[in-house]
Design a protein around this nucleic acid. Sequence first.
DNA 1: GCCCTAGTCAACAGATACGTTGATTTTATC
DNA 2: GATAAAATCAACGTATCTGTTGACTAGGGC
Lengths: 225, 225
Amino acid sequence: MKHGKPMMAPSESGIGKRRTAAREDSSVSHQQRRKEIGEAAIRVFNRMGFQRASMTAVAAELNIDRASLYYYISSKEELFDEIVRTVVERNVALAQKIQASDMRPRRKLSDLIIALMSSYGEHYPLMYIYIRENLSNVSDKRSEWSRYMRDLNRQMSDAVIAIIEQGYADKSFRNVGSSKVVAYGVLGIVGWTHRWFRPAESDVSAEEIGKIYAEMVLAGLESPY
Amino acid sequence: MKHGKPMMAPSESGIGKRRTAAREDSSVSHQQRRKEIGEAAIRVFNRMGFQRASMTAVAAELNIDRASLYYYISSKEELFDEIVRTVVERNVALAQKIQASDMRPRRKLSDLIIALMSSYGEHYPLMYIYIRENLSNVSDKRSEWSRYMRDLNRQMSDAVIAIIEQGYADKSFRNVGSSKVVAYGVLGIVGWTHRWFRPAESDVSAEEIGKIYAEMVLAGLESPY
DNA sequence: GCCCTAGTCAACAGATACGTTGATTTTATC
DNA sequence: GATAAAATCAACGTATCTGTTGACTAGGGC
């Protein structure tokens, strides 16, 4: 493998230097252009999946040359990993905050489900691309990123598990089974929306879906009469 | 594209003919070998994902040469698509049978959740590989297969939706929201197990998970006291 | 006019993959 | 031991992708 930015810039002519400079340029116009590229890339990743999406396709999305892409960014991963990370970090922090609050378990779980769904809707389709990403099947270059993301996932699960256990402990939840299995079930309902929820074409909002699921998980489908 | 089996076998020497013959050979020993190859491939697909898994890796799994693989099978897709199809078809048929039965909605939903989980456990990891496959992001060659599989998915959803609606109609279910959203939620809980359930390392069986989820979906988490 | 930057073009190197091929070796069967 | 099938080997052709490179163009500002 001889890819990646050369360490010593051995044969960098004038333009080579200019390119590396451009990639590190933090001026407003460059940041803006990078943002545009990132958004286009996300659209492409959403349509084709991260692996299948080629840089050629991303360039085509913007109607620019592939070389122009590399004028601003340095790799396909960079284009994606960082944006995803920040949003996931935010969701995890939110879950932990809810879990640590002094609300009652019922309210915590409900709030978390609704908050997660709202986040998915707000950042559509970013979070869904991430959910589809299989962190186990990732190229070696991205192993560090994937380890970190897996850790974030674990923190999210832990927060939900803690809420379930609190509910079991104070008897506000019926113990239907292992807190882990239940927590994964809750996250599954929410995560699975990546399969069918398309905000633009949906007559029900992300938040409304969250409310339905919160109600369903907490009170169940069965009629009490 | 010049891949694929040539239509007229223009330059096929003796061995060429023998190879094509071997691929179509339906003798017991050949079927057996093909099955072994299929199972090895599934293990590899499970570890690396369908796209990333190379035929080289599949050959390595069996400690045989790549050419020997192509002695029995003719493409990566063939190796996978057909096995998956039969299992999914079976699950859909099962769901439709449950839906059309004269049981009450509560029982139908419970049975279906448990049956699906059992099937996932029984055919592990086949169904989970399929769930991870994104039918939208599939190569052109497989478009026909993916269209058909999407149709099966739709039939599965439709069966669940019908059960929910029956429950809404006879008032045995509380109407917590659109039957579609609820049905996808139910399928989400079950489908999401692909993310964490590993039969070999789990102290809870697939069926038990199904029971927990059936209970959770029907009666909810909230304590009635 | 001059310069600088953004962006383009065409080509390249390196990697990996799929599926094929002909010759050759191993293995089993008669 | 001869014969035929199973399996291997090494190589090929084609395709696709990533990231790089150097020369080039277009446009704005001074």
